[in-house]
C-alpha cells in the first residue's frame, strides 16, 4: 500500500464568486441578545433571543449557536413561527455532558450569544405548498415541527396539520400543556414505539387525499428509519416524505 500523508484527498476550496449567503449575512456570525431562558420540560429549556439583525427564516430551519468567540458550535431548530419577527425561540435539549447545551441553559437575560443562519432546506415548509401537512417527531425533534404547526395555524391552512409525537413521557414533550389538545402522543414508556398499525390508524385516510401530503419527520436516526419504513409500507410515495435526523 502506498501512503500519501496529509489532507490530500481533495483540492483547495476557493470561492467561485461572492456567495449569496454571505451577501445576506446568513453565513456570517452575528450577535444576539438573550431575552429569556426558561425550563420547559425535564431536559429542555426555551431560549428566546433577539438577533442584532433580522433575517427571515422558513419553518423547519435551524441556527448554529455558540458562546461569543468560542469554537464549540451546535445547531438548534427554530421553534417560533416565521410570522414572529421580533425574536427567535429555540427548544434546547440539555445534555448533562454536552459542551454547549448546559451553558446555554444557564444564560441570563441580556447575555450575548453568536448565531449563524438561518440554515437548512430539508424539512422546510411554507403555506403555499399543496397537500396536508403531517408532522411526526420524537423527543427534541418536535421543535422544528412546532414552527411549521404555528405557521400553518397562523396562515389558516386547511386541513389543520396532523402532529404526532413520540416521547418517553409527557414531561419530556416540549410545551405539552400548550399543545396537548392537538397532539397525537405515543408514550414509549407505556405504549412502546410508534408502529405501523398506530400510524395506519391515524394516517390511513390521508392516503386518499386528492393532493399528496407533505410529511415532515424529525427525531433520532433510528426513529427516522423506523417511521420511514412504516410510511413506505403503508403506501406513502417516497416524494412525500422529508426527514431530518439529529445525531
Amino acid at each position: 500500500m502506498s501512503l500519501v500523508p496529509g489532507n490530500e484527498t481533495g483540492g483547495r476550496e476557493e470561492p467561485r464568486h461572492a456567495a449569496a449567503a454571505t451577501e445576506t449575512g446568513r453565513a456570517s456570525w452575528r450577535r444576539a441578545t438573550v431575552l429569556t431562558c426558561t425550563p420547559e420540560s425535564s431536559d429542555v429549556v426555551a431560549l428566546s433571543i433577539r438577533p442584532e439583525r433580522w433575517i427571515a427564516h422558513r419553518a423547519g430551519q435551524y441556527y448554529d449557536i455558540r458562546m461569543p468567540a468560542e469554537r464549540v458550535v451546535r445547531a438548534f431548530s427554530v421553534v417560533s413561527s416565521p410570522t414572529v419577527t421580533d425574536h427567535l425561540e429555540f427548544g434546547i435539549q440539555v445534555l448533562p455532558q454536552g459542551l454547549l447545551s448546559p451553558r446555554l441553559a444557564g444564560v441570563r437575560p441580556g447575555a450575548k450569544l453568536e448565531i449563524r443562519g438561518p440554515v437548512g432546506s430539508i424539512i422546510t415548509w411554507s403555506p403555499e405548498m399543496a397537500g396536508r401537512l403531517v408532522l411526526i417527531g420524537a423527543g427534541a425533534g418536535i421543535t422544528p415541527l412546532l414552527s411549521m404547526y404555528e405557521h400553518a395555524t397562523v396562515a389558516g391552512v386547511t386541513p389543520s396539520p396532523t402532529l404526532i409525537v413520540s416521547a418517553k413521557s409527557t414531561q419530556r414533550i416540549f410545551r405539552f400543556d400548550r399543545y396537548r389538545s392537538v397532539l397525537t402522543t405515543r408514550l414509549s414508556s407505556q405504549d412502546g414505539r410508534i408502529d405501523r398499525a398506530f400510524l395506519d390508524s391515524i394516517l390511513g385516510p390521508v392516503l386518499y387525499d386528492d393532493v399528496p401530503p407533505q410529511l415532515r419527520l424529525c427525531g433520532p436516526l433510528g426513529f427516522i428509519g423506523d417511521i420511514v419504513d412504516h410510511l413506505l409500507a403503508l403506501g406513502f410515495p417516497e416524494g412525500t416524505i422529508r426527514s431530518e435526523a439529529f445525531v
Binding site: N7, T9, G10, G11, R12, E13, E14, P15, R16, H17, A18, A19, A20, A21
Partner: peptide, 9 residues
C-alpha cells in the same frame, strides 16, 4: 454551489 467544495467533505 456558490462556493465549490472538494470531495474530501
Amino acid at each position: 454551489m456558490e462556493r465549490p467544495i472538494s470531495m474530501d467533505r
